[in-house]
Computed example of a mutant assay.
Amino acid sequence: MAFFSQSAARAADFSHLQQASVEFRDATKRYGDNRVLNGINLRVNPGEVVAILGPSGSGKSTLIRLINQLEPLSEGEIYIDGKPTRGLSGRALRALRSRVGFVFQQFNLYAHLTALENVTLALTHVHGLKPQAATARALGLLAQVGLQDKAGELPAQLSGGQQQRVAIARALASEPQIILFDEPTSALDPEMIGEVLFVMKTLAHSGITMIVVTHEMQFAREIADRVVFIDGGEILEQAPPQQFFSAPAHPRAQRFLQKVLDPLHLERKDLA
Rank of each mutant, 00 (worst) to 15 (best):
V166G: 06
L158R: 12
A171D: 08
A167S: 14
A171V: 07
A138Q: 10
Q177G: 12
H125W: 09
V196F: 05
T114R: 10
G146Q: 02
M192D: 03
L158V: 09
L121G: 06
T114F: 04
P155S: 08
M200Q: 04
I193L: 09
H205T: 10
A156S: 14
A133R: 11
Q177S: 14
R137N: 03
A138N: 11
A187K: 00
P184D: 08
G160Y: 03
V199F: 06
K150D: 12
H125L: 15
L172F: 07
A169T: 12
V126L: 14
K130T: 13
I178D: 04
E191R: 10
G140I: 07
F181R: 05
T185E: 03
M200D: 00
Q164A: 10
A151Q: 08
L121S: 09
Q148F: 09
Q164S: 10
I178Y: 06
G146I: 00
V166I: 14
A156F: 13
K201E: 13
A138K: 03
L203I: 01
Q148I: 13
I179V: 15
L129A: 05
L158Y: 07
A133M: 02
G140D: 11
R137S: 06
P176C: 11
A143D: 12
A111S: 15
F198M: 14
L139M: 15
Q132G: 11
L141A: 04
V145W: 03
S206D: 10
D149K: 13
I179S: 02
A187N: 03
I178T: 06
L197G: 01
Q144H: 11
G146K: 00
E153I: 12
S174G: 12
A115G: 08
L129T: 05
E117K: 05
D182V: 05
I168H: 07
I168L: 13
P155K: 06
S159E: 08
Q177Y: 08
E153A: 15
S159C: 11
L154I: 10
E195F: 02
K201Q: 13
A143I: 02
L172D: 02
L188C: 06
Q164I: 08
A122S: 14
L142W: 03
P155D: 07
A173L: 07
I168C: 11
L154K: 12
P184M: 07
E195Q: 13
A136G: 02
R170G: 09
S159Q: 11
L203D: 01
Q162C: 11
G194I: 03
G140W: 00
K150A: 14
L188A: 04
A171C: 12
E195R: 02
R137Y: 04
L116N: 02
E117A: 09
M200K: 03
L188H: 00
F198T: 11
S159N: 10
I193E: 08
A156P: 01
A187Q: 00
L116D: 01
L123E: 00
S206L: 04
F198C: 11
T202P: 00
L142H: 05
E183A: 03
L147G: 06
H205Y: 05
L147I: 12
Q132V: 15
T202V: 09
A169Q: 06
A138P: 09
L141R: 02
F181E: 00
Q132R: 15
H205K: 08
F181Y: 13
T124M: 14
Q157R: 15
G207H: 04
L154H: 13
G160Q: 07
L188I: 02
A134E: 04
V196N: 01
Q132K: 15
T135A: 06
A115D: 06
I168T: 08
